[in-house]
């Protein structure tokens, strides 16, 4: 079994989000980068499925050389090898195209992504890869079982879940529940240094969208405190002032 896991390099979850260049660029100064938390879940599930010599896990990242520490982290967690497509990701369409083109060169049984990247939150890449390859894509899964030819997945839907079965190749985007994120151990960290990380050139594709600028939400006013015994007053404020109940 061969599994491809797509890894994006994102700002640490505690990052204070600010912008530079007249709000056109994310301010990377002092920002720590991590493996996108959902991708960690996808990777952990892939490693579990391949445990005991049942298969190999390849991680792929579309990014410039500064993403290599994040790729090494994925290798330390337990991926067998890594590929970096050398380009700054322009948008999901560009990123998904690069991954799909790479996937065509090797025979992967499944491609796993995170449900969304926590920076641009497109939740787009996985389904786009599926479409580029003409294979099923199942978005926002919380369970994945595989018996060597058929996968059974649980996908989140409003107010419940859906169980889906797929025979043949597929793409899935993983959310919480799919696996417990694995933490790299000492042996993993040591071996990550020598695991293969190859670099490939990006392929050209038309650009369909671009981010022009960013804004941060307006700050909220100061909180109106209501004494603990006056819950009726809170209800009154929510009804008459905020008009939300």
């Amino acid at each position: 079994m061969k599994i491809l896991v797509c890894i994006s390099n994102v700002p640490d979850t505690t990052t204070k989000i600010t912008f530079t260049g007249d709000n056109t660029q994310f301010n990377t100064a002092g920002v720590q980068y991590i493996v996108n938390p959902y991708d960690e879940i996808a990777l952990s599930r892939a490693i579990e499925l391949c445990e005991g010599g049942k298969g190999t896990v390849t991680v792929i990242n579309v990014g410039e050389s500064q993403t290599e520490p994040t790729i090494r982290k994925a290798l330390a967690i337990g991926a067998d090898e890594a590929v970096r497509i050398n380009a700054a990701p322009r948008d999901a369409y560009f990123t998904a195209y690069q991954i799909a083109e790479y996937a065509k060169t090797a025979d992967f049984d499944m491609i796993l992504c995170g449900r969304e990247s926590i920076d641009y939150n497109g939740a787009q890449v996985a389904a786009m890869i599926g479409e580029f390859l003409g294979i099923p894509s199942i978005s926002i899964i919380k369970k994945l079982e595989y018996d060597g030819s058929t996968a059974t997945l649980e996908r989140e839907i409003e107010g419940g879940k859906e169980v889906i079965s797929v025979s043949g190749k597929f793409v899935a985007s993983c959310s919480e529940g799919t696996a417990e994120p694995k933490i790299p151990n000492m042996r993993g960290i040591m071996s990550a240094r020598t695991k293969p990380l190859s670099v490939a050139d990006a392929k050209e594709i038309e650009q369909l969208s671009s981010i022009l600028h960013f804004e941060t939400p307006p700050p909220r006013g100061t909180v109106k405190l209501v004494p603990a015994e006056e819950t009726a007053k809170l209800v009154d404020l929510l009804h008459n002032e905020a008009k939300v109940i």
Binding site: Y93, A96, A123, Q124, V125, E131, S137, S139, I140, L208
Partner: peptide, 23 residues
């Protein structure tokens, strides 16, 4: 942009070579 919409919009966009804005 529902759970199903999230799995659908990107595929439609690729088919139509359309730029996609979600959320």
């Amino acid at each position: 942009n529902s759970f199903s919409g999230k799995g659908l919009a990107p595929r439609i966009a690729v088919k139509l070579r359309a730029g996609l804005a979600d959320g």
